[in-house]
Nucleic acid binder design. Structure first.
Length: 329
DNA sequence: AACCAAGGCAACCGCTCGCAG
DNA sequence: CCTGCGAGCGGTTGCCTTGGT
Protein backbone atom coordinates (compact mmCIF):
# COMPACT_ATOMS: atom_id res chain seq x y z
CA UNK A 1 0.00 0.00 0.00
CA UNK A 2 1.16 3.45 -0.82
CA UNK A 3 2.04 6.19 1.51
CA UNK A 4 -0.94 8.22 2.59
CA UNK A 5 -1.36 11.30 0.47
CA UNK A 6 -3.92 13.17 2.51
CA UNK A 7 -3.47 16.84 3.20
CA UNK A 8 -1.65 17.86 6.34
CA UNK A 9 -3.19 21.01 7.69
CA UNK A 10 -0.20 21.86 9.87
CA UNK A 11 2.12 22.16 6.90
CA UNK A 12 0.60 25.48 5.87
CA UNK A 13 -1.96 24.03 3.52
CA UNK A 14 -5.29 25.73 3.52
CA UNK A 15 -8.42 23.71 4.19
CA UNK A 16 -12.15 24.34 3.99
CA UNK A 17 -14.30 25.96 1.35
CA UNK A 18 -12.67 27.26 -1.78
CA UNK A 19 -12.75 30.97 -2.54
CA UNK A 20 -13.53 32.45 -5.93
CA UNK A 21 -9.91 33.55 -6.32
CA UNK A 22 -8.67 30.03 -5.66
CA UNK A 23 -11.14 28.60 -8.13
CA UNK A 24 -9.99 31.05 -10.77
CA UNK A 25 -6.34 30.23 -10.18
CA UNK A 26 -6.95 26.51 -10.45
CA UNK A 27 -9.21 26.84 -13.45
CA UNK A 28 -6.78 29.10 -15.28
CA UNK A 29 -3.85 26.80 -14.57
CA UNK A 30 -5.59 23.60 -15.65
CA UNK A 31 -7.01 25.19 -18.76
CA UNK A 32 -3.58 26.42 -19.76
CA UNK A 33 -1.33 23.53 -18.72
CA UNK A 34 -3.61 20.60 -17.96
CA UNK A 35 -3.51 19.17 -14.46
CA UNK A 36 -0.53 16.91 -14.97
CA UNK A 37 0.75 15.83 -11.58
CA UNK A 38 -1.72 16.90 -8.93
CA UNK A 39 0.88 16.86 -6.19
CA UNK A 40 3.01 19.48 -7.85
CA UNK A 41 0.12 21.48 -9.27
CA UNK A 42 -0.66 23.68 -6.23
CA UNK A 43 2.86 25.07 -6.12
CA UNK A 44 2.92 25.73 -9.85
CA UNK A 45 -0.53 27.31 -9.74
CA UNK A 46 0.27 29.36 -6.66
CA UNK A 47 -2.28 27.69 -4.44
CA UNK A 48 -1.97 27.01 -0.73
CA UNK A 49 -3.83 23.74 -1.13
CA UNK A 50 -2.73 20.15 -1.29
CA UNK A 51 -2.86 18.38 -4.63
CA UNK A 52 -5.60 16.13 -3.49
CA UNK A 53 -7.80 19.04 -2.57
CA UNK A 54 -7.15 20.62 -5.98
CA UNK A 55 -7.98 17.42 -7.77
CA UNK A 56 -11.23 17.07 -5.85
CA UNK A 57 -12.23 20.66 -6.49
CA UNK A 58 -11.56 20.23 -10.17
CA UNK A 59 -13.35 16.91 -10.47
CA UNK A 60 -16.39 17.84 -8.47
CA UNK A 61 -16.86 21.48 -9.24
CA UNK A 62 -14.66 23.26 -11.77
CA UNK A 63 -14.57 20.76 -14.62
CA UNK A 64 -16.41 22.28 -17.57
CA UNK A 65 -18.36 19.13 -18.40
CA UNK A 66 -20.35 19.07 -15.20
CA UNK A 67 -24.08 19.38 -15.18
CA UNK A 68 -25.45 20.88 -12.00
CA UNK A 69 -29.00 21.25 -10.80
CA UNK A 70 -31.89 18.93 -10.26
CA UNK A 71 -31.73 15.28 -11.15
CA UNK A 72 -34.27 14.19 -13.73
CA UNK A 73 -36.60 11.29 -13.13
CA UNK A 74 -34.59 9.30 -15.60
CA UNK A 75 -31.46 9.93 -13.56
CA UNK A 76 -33.30 9.00 -10.38
CA UNK A 77 -34.34 5.71 -11.87
CA UNK A 78 -30.91 4.98 -13.21
CA UNK A 79 -29.34 5.59 -9.83
CA UNK A 80 -31.86 3.45 -7.98
CA UNK A 81 -31.68 0.59 -10.41
CA UNK A 82 -27.92 0.64 -10.67
CA UNK A 83 -27.62 0.90 -6.92
CA UNK A 84 -29.77 -2.21 -6.62
CA UNK A 85 -27.40 -3.92 -8.95
CA UNK A 86 -24.03 -2.51 -7.96
CA UNK A 87 -24.42 -1.28 -4.40
CA UNK A 88 -22.38 1.73 -3.30
CA UNK A 89 -20.20 1.71 -6.38
CA UNK A 90 -20.69 5.38 -6.99
CA UNK A 91 -18.10 5.73 -9.69
CA UNK A 92 -19.63 2.84 -11.60
CA UNK A 93 -23.10 4.29 -11.21
CA UNK A 94 -21.90 7.74 -12.20
CA UNK A 95 -20.37 6.31 -15.34
CA UNK A 96 -23.92 5.94 -16.63
CA UNK A 97 -24.93 9.46 -15.67
CA UNK A 98 -23.22 11.84 -18.07
CA UNK A 99 -21.96 15.06 -16.56
CA UNK A 100 -22.64 14.06 -12.97
CA UNK A 101 -19.95 13.52 -10.36
CA UNK A 102 -19.73 10.55 -8.07
CA UNK A 103 -19.80 12.86 -5.06
CA UNK A 104 -22.97 14.48 -6.29
CA UNK A 105 -24.66 11.15 -6.99
CA UNK A 106 -23.58 9.82 -3.62
CA UNK A 107 -24.91 12.88 -1.82
CA UNK A 108 -28.12 12.76 -3.79
CA UNK A 109 -28.59 9.13 -2.89
CA UNK A 110 -28.08 9.74 0.81
CA UNK A 111 -30.18 12.87 1.01
CA UNK A 112 -33.05 12.01 -1.34
CA UNK A 113 -33.35 8.61 -2.94
CA UNK A 114 -32.52 6.53 0.09
CA UNK A 115 -35.29 8.26 1.98
CA UNK A 116 -37.77 7.72 -0.80
CA UNK A 117 -37.10 4.01 -0.74
CA UNK A 118 -37.31 3.91 3.03
CA UNK A 119 -40.57 5.84 2.89
CA UNK A 120 -42.02 3.20 0.62
CA UNK A 121 -40.90 0.49 3.00
CA UNK A 122 -37.83 -0.71 1.17
CA UNK A 123 -34.46 -1.34 2.61
CA UNK A 124 -32.17 1.11 0.78
CA UNK A 125 -29.31 -1.35 1.05
CA UNK A 126 -30.98 -4.50 -0.28
CA UNK A 127 -33.80 -2.77 -2.18
CA UNK A 128 -36.14 -5.34 -0.71
CA UNK A 129 -39.22 -4.70 1.43
CA UNK A 130 -38.31 -4.27 5.06
CA UNK A 131 -41.07 -6.74 5.97
CA UNK A 132 -40.83 -10.32 4.85
CA UNK A 133 -41.54 -10.91 1.21
CA UNK A 134 -44.32 -13.33 2.18
CA UNK A 135 -46.27 -10.96 4.34
CA UNK A 136 -46.45 -7.47 5.72
CA UNK A 137 -45.51 -6.46 9.21
CA UNK A 138 -48.94 -7.43 10.51
CA UNK A 139 -48.79 -10.71 8.68
CA UNK A 140 -51.33 -9.74 6.06
CA UNK A 141 -51.00 -9.52 2.29
CA UNK A 142 -54.52 -8.27 1.76
CA UNK A 143 -53.45 -4.79 0.75
CA UNK A 144 -53.36 -4.94 -3.03
CA UNK A 145 -50.73 -2.22 -3.26
CA UNK A 146 -48.43 -4.04 -0.88
CA UNK A 147 -49.00 -7.18 -2.84
CA UNK A 148 -48.20 -5.41 -6.10
CA UNK A 149 -45.04 -3.95 -4.65
CA UNK A 150 -43.88 -7.29 -3.38
CA UNK A 151 -44.61 -8.76 -6.74
CA UNK A 152 -42.47 -6.13 -8.41
CA UNK A 153 -39.63 -6.75 -6.06
CA UNK A 154 -39.83 -10.44 -6.83
CA UNK A 155 -39.77 -9.56 -10.51
CA UNK A 156 -36.77 -7.36 -9.97
CA UNK A 157 -34.91 -10.12 -8.21
CA UNK A 158 -35.86 -12.54 -10.94
CA UNK A 159 -34.62 -10.10 -13.55
CA UNK A 160 -31.38 -9.66 -11.69
CA UNK A 161 -30.71 -13.39 -11.64
CA UNK A 162 -31.76 -13.70 -15.24
CA UNK A 163 -29.42 -10.89 -16.22
CA UNK A 164 -26.51 -12.39 -14.33
CA UNK A 165 -26.97 -15.67 -16.12
CA UNK A 166 -27.39 -13.95 -19.41
CA UNK A 167 -24.36 -11.79 -18.87
CA UNK A 168 -22.24 -14.88 -18.47
CA UNK A 169 -23.60 -16.39 -21.63
CA UNK A 170 -23.34 -13.12 -23.51
CA UNK A 171 -19.72 -12.82 -22.64
CA UNK A 172 -18.85 -16.24 -23.97
CA UNK A 173 -20.85 -15.84 -27.16
CA UNK A 174 -19.49 -12.44 -27.89
CA UNK A 175 -15.97 -13.61 -27.26
CA UNK A 176 -16.50 -16.12 -30.04
CA UNK A 177 -18.13 -13.53 -32.30
CA UNK A 178 -15.42 -11.01 -31.63
CA UNK A 179 -12.72 -13.51 -32.40
CA UNK A 180 -14.35 -14.39 -35.72
CA UNK A 181 -14.93 -10.75 -36.52
CA UNK A 182 -11.29 -9.96 -35.89
CA UNK A 183 -10.44 -12.69 -38.34
CA UNK A 184 -12.71 -11.08 -40.93
CA UNK A 185 -15.14 -13.96 -40.77
CA UNK A 186 -18.20 -11.74 -40.98
CA UNK A 187 -20.49 -14.54 -42.03
CA UNK A 188 -19.67 -16.69 -39.01
CA UNK A 189 -19.91 -13.64 -36.76
CA UNK A 190 -23.42 -12.95 -38.03
CA UNK A 191 -24.44 -16.53 -37.51
CA UNK A 192 -23.38 -16.46 -33.89
CA UNK A 193 -25.07 -13.16 -33.20
CA UNK A 194 -28.24 -14.12 -35.02
CA UNK A 195 -28.45 -17.42 -33.17
CA UNK A 196 -27.96 -15.50 -30.01
CA UNK A 197 -30.75 -13.11 -30.88
CA UNK A 198 -33.16 -16.01 -31.23
CA UNK A 199 -32.63 -16.71 -27.56
CA UNK A 200 -32.33 -13.23 -26.18
CA UNK A 201 -33.74 -10.82 -28.73
CA UNK A 202 -31.96 -8.70 -31.26
CA UNK A 203 -30.84 -5.93 -28.97
CA UNK A 204 -27.88 -7.88 -27.75
CA UNK A 205 -26.07 -7.78 -31.01
CA UNK A 206 -26.14 -4.02 -30.90
CA UNK A 207 -23.78 -3.94 -27.99
CA UNK A 208 -21.11 -6.26 -29.17
CA UNK A 209 -19.02 -8.17 -26.70
CA UNK A 210 -19.16 -5.66 -23.89
CA UNK A 211 -22.85 -5.56 -23.16
CA UNK A 212 -23.22 -3.13 -20.27
CA UNK A 213 -24.51 -5.20 -17.40
CA UNK A 214 -26.75 -2.45 -16.13
CA UNK A 215 -28.57 -2.16 -19.41
CA UNK A 216 -28.84 -5.88 -19.56
CA UNK A 217 -30.66 -6.04 -16.27
CA UNK A 218 -32.87 -3.12 -17.18
CA UNK A 219 -33.87 -4.97 -20.29
CA UNK A 220 -34.46 -8.18 -18.40
CA UNK A 221 -36.62 -6.45 -15.88
CA UNK A 222 -38.46 -4.60 -18.54
CA UNK A 223 -39.17 -7.71 -20.56
CA UNK A 224 -40.70 -9.39 -17.51
CA UNK A 225 -42.85 -6.38 -16.77
CA UNK A 226 -43.89 -6.07 -20.38
CA UNK A 227 -44.90 -9.69 -20.70
CA UNK A 228 -46.86 -9.49 -17.46
CA UNK A 229 -48.51 -6.32 -18.55
CA UNK A 230 -49.36 -7.83 -21.88
CA UNK A 231 -51.16 -10.68 -20.14
CA UNK A 232 -52.97 -8.32 -17.82
CA UNK A 233 -54.06 -6.20 -20.75
CA UNK A 234 -55.54 -9.21 -22.45
CA UNK A 235 -53.04 -9.14 -25.25
CA UNK A 236 -53.84 -5.59 -26.23
CA UNK A 237 -51.01 -3.26 -26.89
CA UNK A 238 -51.17 -0.57 -24.27
CA UNK A 239 -47.46 -0.38 -23.92
CA UNK A 240 -46.82 1.56 -27.03
CA UNK A 241 -49.58 3.99 -26.38
CA UNK A 242 -47.36 6.40 -24.57
CA UNK A 243 -45.71 8.16 -27.37
CA UNK A 244 -43.42 6.40 -29.74
CA UNK A 245 -46.27 5.69 -32.07
CA UNK A 246 -45.38 2.09 -32.70
CA UNK A 247 -48.11 -0.40 -33.18
CA UNK A 248 -48.24 -4.10 -32.56
CA UNK A 249 -45.85 -6.35 -30.77
CA UNK A 250 -43.70 -5.82 -27.76
CA UNK A 251 -40.57 -4.88 -29.52
CA UNK A 252 -37.43 -4.72 -27.48
CA UNK A 253 -37.40 -1.12 -26.35
CA UNK A 254 -34.05 -0.19 -27.79
CA UNK A 255 -35.11 -1.43 -31.17
CA UNK A 256 -38.24 0.63 -30.70
CA UNK A 257 -36.04 3.62 -30.16
CA UNK A 258 -34.08 2.99 -33.27
CA UNK A 259 -37.01 2.25 -35.51
CA UNK A 260 -39.11 5.12 -34.26
CA UNK A 261 -39.02 8.09 -36.56
CA UNK A 262 -41.21 10.65 -34.85
CA UNK A 263 -38.61 12.22 -32.62
CA UNK A 264 -39.59 10.53 -29.40
CA UNK A 265 -37.08 10.66 -26.61
CA UNK A 266 -35.15 7.74 -25.23
CA UNK A 267 -37.48 7.86 -22.25
CA UNK A 268 -40.43 7.22 -24.53
CA UNK A 269 -38.72 4.34 -26.18
CA UNK A 270 -36.79 2.79 -23.39
CA UNK A 271 -39.33 2.93 -20.62
CA UNK A 272 -42.89 2.57 -21.68
CA UNK A 273 -45.78 3.78 -19.60
CA UNK A 274 -46.54 0.67 -17.55
CA UNK A 275 -42.97 0.57 -16.40
CA UNK A 276 -43.12 4.18 -15.34
CA UNK A 277 -46.27 3.38 -13.39
CA UNK A 278 -44.62 0.41 -11.81
CA UNK A 279 -41.62 2.48 -10.93
CA UNK A 280 -43.83 5.14 -9.45
CA UNK A 281 -45.59 2.61 -7.29
CA UNK A 282 -42.38 1.05 -6.17
CA UNK A 283 -40.24 4.04 -5.56
CA UNK A 284 -42.62 6.88 -4.94
CA UNK A 285 -41.47 9.10 -7.74
CA UNK A 286 -44.02 11.23 -9.41
CA UNK A 287 -44.95 10.49 -12.98
CA UNK A 288 -46.18 14.01 -13.26
CA UNK A 289 -42.62 15.24 -13.13
CA UNK A 290 -41.61 16.36 -16.58
CA UNK A 291 -39.34 13.87 -18.22
CA UNK A 292 -36.03 15.05 -19.47
CA UNK A 293 -35.96 14.50 -23.17
CA UNK A 294 -32.70 13.39 -24.64
CA UNK A 295 -31.43 16.10 -26.97
CA UNK A 296 -32.07 15.12 -30.53
CA UNK A 297 -28.62 16.11 -31.66
CA UNK A 298 -26.84 13.56 -29.47
CA UNK A 299 -26.60 10.98 -32.16
CA UNK A 300 -29.74 9.22 -33.24
CA UNK A 301 -31.93 11.37 -35.36
CA UNK A 302 -34.99 10.12 -33.55
CA UNK A 303 -33.71 11.32 -30.21
CA UNK A 304 -32.31 8.15 -28.72
CA UNK A 305 -29.17 8.88 -26.79
CA UNK A 306 -26.03 7.77 -28.51
CA UNK A 307 -24.20 7.52 -25.24
CA UNK A 308 -26.40 4.55 -24.41
CA UNK A 309 -25.12 2.88 -27.51
CA UNK A 310 -21.53 3.89 -26.97
CA UNK A 311 -20.02 0.45 -27.08
CA UNK A 312 -21.97 -0.43 -30.12
CA UNK A 313 -20.86 2.80 -31.74
CA UNK A 314 -17.24 1.93 -31.09
CA UNK A 315 -17.71 -1.49 -32.59
CA UNK A 316 -19.61 -0.20 -35.59
CA UNK A 317 -17.48 2.87 -36.18
CA UNK A 318 -16.27 3.09 -39.73
CA UNK A 319 -18.25 0.09 -40.86
CA UNK A 320 -20.29 0.52 -43.97
CA UNK A 321 -22.52 -2.42 -43.15
CA UNK A 322 -24.17 -0.67 -40.23
CA UNK A 323 -27.43 -2.60 -40.01
CA UNK A 324 -29.63 0.28 -38.92
CA UNK A 325 -30.41 3.19 -41.15
CA UNK A 326 -30.90 6.72 -39.99
CA UNK A 327 -28.10 6.80 -37.47
CA UNK A 328 -25.53 9.54 -37.51
CA UNK A 329 -22.09 8.15 -37.13
C1' DA B 1 -37.14 38.53 15.16
C1' DA B 2 -34.57 35.01 17.29
C1' DC B 3 -33.53 30.50 18.09
C1' DC B 4 -33.11 25.68 17.05
C1' DA B 5 -33.19 21.41 14.46
C1' DA B 6 -32.83 19.07 10.26
C1' DG B 7 -31.27 18.63 5.71
C1' DG B 8 -28.13 19.31 1.89
C1' DC B 9 -23.82 19.37 0.07
C1' DA B 10 -18.82 20.53 -0.42
C1' DA B 11 -14.79 18.97 1.25
C1' DC B 12 -11.90 15.93 3.86
C1' DC B 13 -9.92 11.47 5.31
C1' DG B 14 -8.25 6.99 4.98
C1' DC B 15 -7.88 3.24 2.32
C1' DT B 16 -7.05 0.57 -2.06
C1' DC B 17 -5.46 0.14 -6.68
C1' DG B 18 -2.36 0.43 -10.50
C1' DC B 19 1.90 1.38 -12.25
C1' DA B 20 6.77 2.40 -12.63
C1' DG B 21 11.34 1.65 -11.07
C1' DC C 1 8.69 -9.68 -6.45
C1' DC C 2 8.92 -5.56 -3.64
C1' DT C 3 8.43 -0.75 -2.72
C1' DG C 4 6.98 3.92 -3.33
C1' DC C 5 4.03 7.08 -5.38
C1' DG C 6 0.00 9.18 -7.55
C1' DA C 7 -4.75 8.68 -8.46
C1' DG C 8 -9.24 7.15 -7.41
C1' DC C 9 -12.98 5.61 -4.44
C1' DG C 10 -16.26 5.48 -0.72
C1' DG C 11 -17.34 6.86 4.00
C1' DT C 12 -17.63 10.65 7.01
C1' DT C 13 -17.56 15.32 8.72
C1' DG C 14 -18.89 19.84 9.37
C1' DC C 15 -20.56 24.14 7.61
C1' DC C 16 -24.30 26.60 5.59
C1' DT C 17 -29.08 27.03 4.47
C1' DT C 18 -33.83 26.37 5.24
C1' DG C 19 -37.96 25.63 7.69
C1' DG C 20 -40.45 25.36 11.93
C1' DT C 21 -41.59 27.19 16.45
Amino acid sequence: MGKSTHCVASSGMKKGPWTLAEDQKLLAYVQKHGHGNWQSLPQKAGLQRCGKSCRLRWRNYLRPDIRRGNFSLQEDRTIIQLHALLGNKWSAITAHLPKRTDNEVKNYWHSHLKKRLALKGYDPVTHKPKTTIFGSANGSTDDPKTSTNLNHIAQWESARLQAEARFGRDLELHKQAHHLYNNNDISATSTILLDHSKDFGPTDQLYGQNTPQCLDILRAWESILMSNYSEAAGGQDHVNSFGNGLAGDFEPPIISAISSSNGSSLMDCFFHEPIRQCFDENYGTSITEPFTAVPHNMGFKNGACLEDFGLWEIIMQGRKDCPISGISM
